[in-house]
Design a protein around this nucleic acid. Structure first.
Lengths: 221, 221
DNA sequence: GTCTATATCTCGATAGAC
DNA sequence: GTCTATCGAGATATAGAC
């Protein structure tokens, strides 16, 4: 039973953690990669390095394990949008968002994979979670959408649909993680040093998007 | 048995087609959404409107059905990159690529979903297909990557990493399809008229990327 | 070619020894 | 808390009537 404890939230290799946490972390990965139906308890057990019946000792059923995992993954997804507030130029806000978002997805890549998996599977649980989050806090992108609209109104950037822009930026940040093997095959740097590749990507994305938004030639960060 | 026939390639509702084709089209959707492990033959049979044993009559095993489907999906994925050649300005080439790519993914959305699903699942079959395609024809993005590099060398656009740019554009084109429910929840237009939303998206993406690339203020298309 | 019935196997879940 | 053994459900696959 018990709904995960979550003390030392350092993302260790998930070794030398207590059994429940190791199961939870393993389930995170497998459910994100394969979806609820595609995931096999055996694969989760192997990933956690334990025997299958222990899953039931700690979480009773696959359903309950999944729900615990889904809750955490959805929370991580929402948190990714909470970029540090920037009061300055829009370019600074944008740079901060891109940097923070890519770092956040790197840290919680399974949350991003899970979102995509569940969207493609047409999962009802995701629909409910989204509806609930919208009802209580509004769109997760709210803050950035408003920042974009303000910058448009003030003439700081060219007229642009804020939601389209957000989808473009989020897409460009998340996609490398959900197509990792292909990206590594197409880009040598991604294969050999993925962290370096991500830093390059941050810079590239900011350059392309920012200069695409600037009213005239701008000085960049 | 038999490896699909593929005569009238008009994407009808897949009704009034011969049984084998209906099974194949149904398998396309389900395997793309759920992956090989997550897919249930019953779901494929329901989607095709036939009884389950017929799947085995035409394709013997789940494995063989999957392989036939995967081959077609991978081909569709490769074809998406074959944009009509444009000899003119780079902006025209880019606009043609974006328009063609979004249309192509709309037409073959299951190929895009399948690519993402298999990447996340770490599928070996995808790895082999990619390696084979690379060995024989080089990167599918080759043509566009070269076009970008040429435009950079000639000074027509600002210096930019061609592969990073391609990933950014492809991400922005594909992502709406693999996160459809969420996108529809976040953007009213996407929910009410997705085709109109895609047209808006084509224009938006071209605007952002093109002006981000232009050496100086450019006249747009 | 398509259906019904059934065999086989995989997966999720439980019982009980340690 | 962890392991071995096993049951029952659900999924794949086959046999045989029509």
């Amino acid at each position: 039973m018990s709904t995960q404890v979550n003390e030392s939230q350092v993302p260790t290799g998930s070794d030398d953690l207590d059994t429940e946490t190791r199961i939870f972390e393993a389930a995170l990965k497998v459910f994100a990669r394969k979806g609820k139906d595609g995931a096999r308890l055996q694969e989760i057990a192997d990933e956690a390095g334990i025997h299958r019946p222990l899953l039931h000792y700690y979480f009773r059923t696959k359903q309950q394990l999944y729900e615990a995992v889904a809750e955490r993954l959805f929370t991580d997804f929402l948190l990714s949008f909470d970029a540090p507030a920037e009061g300055g130029r829009f370019a600074d806000t944008l740079k901060a968002f891109i940097d923070h978002y890519i770092d956040s997805v790197r840290e919680h890549r399974h949350a991003a994979m899970w979102m995509v998996t569940e969207n493609m599977a047409g999962s009802p649980i995701l629909g409910e979670m989204l509806a609930r989050a919208f009802a209580t806090e509004g769109s997760p992108q709210r803050a950035m959408v408003e920042a974009v609209e303000l910058a448009v109104e003030s003439g700081e950037i060219r007229p642009v649909d804020a939601r389209q822009l957000m989808l473009t930026v989020v897409s460009a940040c998340v996609f490398p993680f959900v197509t990792l093997p292909t990206v590594k095959m197409m880009n040598p740097l991604a294969a050999e040093d993925f962290d370096a590749y991500l830093e390059e990507r941050k810079a590239h994305l900011f350059e392309v998007v920012c200069h695409g938004l600037a009213s005239r030639e701008v000085s960049d960060a």
